[in-house]
Simulated assay, not measured.
Amino acid sequence: MTNNVFAVPTVDVSPYLEDPSDANAARRVAVAAQLDRACREVGFIQIVGHGVDHATIDGFASALDEFFALDDVTKARYRGPSGSNRGYTPPKSASLSMSLGIPPANMRNDFYEAFTIGREVDDYPHLDLPEGTYPRNLWPAEAPSFPAAVARYNEAVTAVSRAILWAFADALGVGRPFFESLIDHSIDTLKMNNYALPEMSFDVAEELIGMGAHTDFGILTVLWADRVAGLQILDKEGTWHDVMPDPGAFLVNLGDAMARWTNDQWLSTIHRVNPPIVQGRVQRRRSAAFFLDGNYDGVIEPIATFVTDGEELYPPITVEENIKAKIAGIELGKKPANADREANRVLAARSAG
């Protein structure tokens, strides 16, 4: 917030991706301070200086087009098992608002379609990890450019997420070792989304839900998105605001783990996607969210320096337990514990005038 005007802060994170020597220390201190303020006031940050080149992003966007242009029968072959968070998710098969225990309006599920990849058990060969938590990826043979382009982008944005996390460590004063011990076998996933419906396939008088109101589950999210209206975030005063990335920028937001570690001094901001309807048709919108979730057995509990008068807002929980509780809400309609505060904020929210 600046003079009571809502804005998502823009931060150049290049000092954390360039020279790691002490010669760059002052620039890193400035970046960490900017991030600390943004995380306390908004919970969303626009990131520039991230170092991901245009060719990687353009190739990735083309790969999304290639896959989502396939027919429904072909895409359905790549649906992953329930709870696996892998492969294809067709429209209207999930409701993200149920991760907060909020039923969708008119009982309509979110209309977006998605494809998800993530870290596999083989990515950590030195560890005995549960394959159900680190499942195999599904790669569509009918979209030949998709695997390589997606993998290239995924590795690039993974590096960005780590750089931002090291900046967060400095901002919080906990040092890198605190987070290094929590991400050395991180669950990291990349969810690629496509928002579009055939013309006049819905009743425009009803509320249309692109992606229901929710918080993200892990540590932080790095979002690439088309410059198309739709993304909205809920401020601390209970008002929804439209957010759109600048050309070439990423949007970064905090997840539940960071809010729990900081005892809610940093914000896991509620957000949703509610795309515009133009002449009876949803305008095309693509996005891709990289989730840095942390080790499945990492414990999330308030850091002692963020606890005032012994008041811990959250009980300890593992990364996997938190994720499973949210997914159970999305897929099974089971309300997660400790979601009432966020649910009440969404139900009382209003749009910006």
Rank of each mutant, 00 (worst) to 15 (best):
A167T: 02
D184R: 15
A76M: 09
W139P: 04
P198L: 04
I164G: 14
E331G: 05
L292S: 13
I303T: 11
F178R: 15
P198K: 08
K326E: 09
Y314G: 14
D19P: 05
D246Y: 05
K75T: 04
A23T: 09
V319K: 09
Y88C: 01
Y88K: 06
P140I: 02
Y296N: 01
R260W: 08
H54C: 09
E199C: 05
D216W: 01
R79C: 15
P81D: 10
D242W: 08
A141Q: 14
E142S: 03
D122T: 04
V48E: 15
A259C: 03
T308H: 13
D19F: 05
T305Y: 14
N193L: 08
Y16L: 00
G255T: 11
W261H: 01
E301N: 01
S62D: 10
M244D: 12
T89E: 12
W240R: 12
A63K: 09
S201H: 06
E342A: 09
R345F: 03
I233A: 11
N3D: 00
V31A: 10
T215S: 11
I327V: 12
N338M: 10
H54V: 09
V252F: 11
F111L: 08
T308W: 06
G80T: 14
F146G: 00
N263L: 07
V11K: 04
R176P: 12
G83H: 03
F68C: 02
S99H: 05
T74N: 13
N194R: 14
S82N: 13
I117R: 11
A149G: 01
G118P: 02
G87K: 10
G173W: 03
D216A: 01
M192T: 11
R281F: 02
P103M: 07
G87P: 01
V31L: 07
D256P: 04
E312S: 13
P15W: 11
T308F: 13
S62Q: 03
M192C: 03
A171H: 01
R108C: 12
V282T: 14
G329S: 02
P140Q: 11
Y124F: 15
R77Q: 14
A32F: 06
I45D: 02
F250D: 07
D58T: 13
P144K: 06
T89N: 12
I233N: 13
N253P: 03
D256E: 15
N85P: 03
G238H: 08
D226Y: 03
L129W: 04
V42E: 06
F306L: 00
W224K: 02
E342P: 07
L208T: 13
L165F: 05
P125T: 08
N338W: 10
G80W: 15
S99P: 07
D297N: 08
I317S: 09
Q265A: 12
V160I: 07
I300Q: 13
M211Y: 02
D72V: 14
E206Y: 05
E120A: 02
K326A: 14
G175W: 07
K92R: 12
W166F: 03
L129G: 05
D309W: 07
D170Y: 11
A352N: 01
G255Q: 07
L17K: 06
Y134G: 15
R260K: 09
I164F: 15
D65T: 08
V273H: 14
L172H: 10
T318Y: 13
L100V: 00
F6N: 00
P125W: 06
Q283A: 15
D264Y: 02
S82I: 11
P302F: 07
G248R: 12
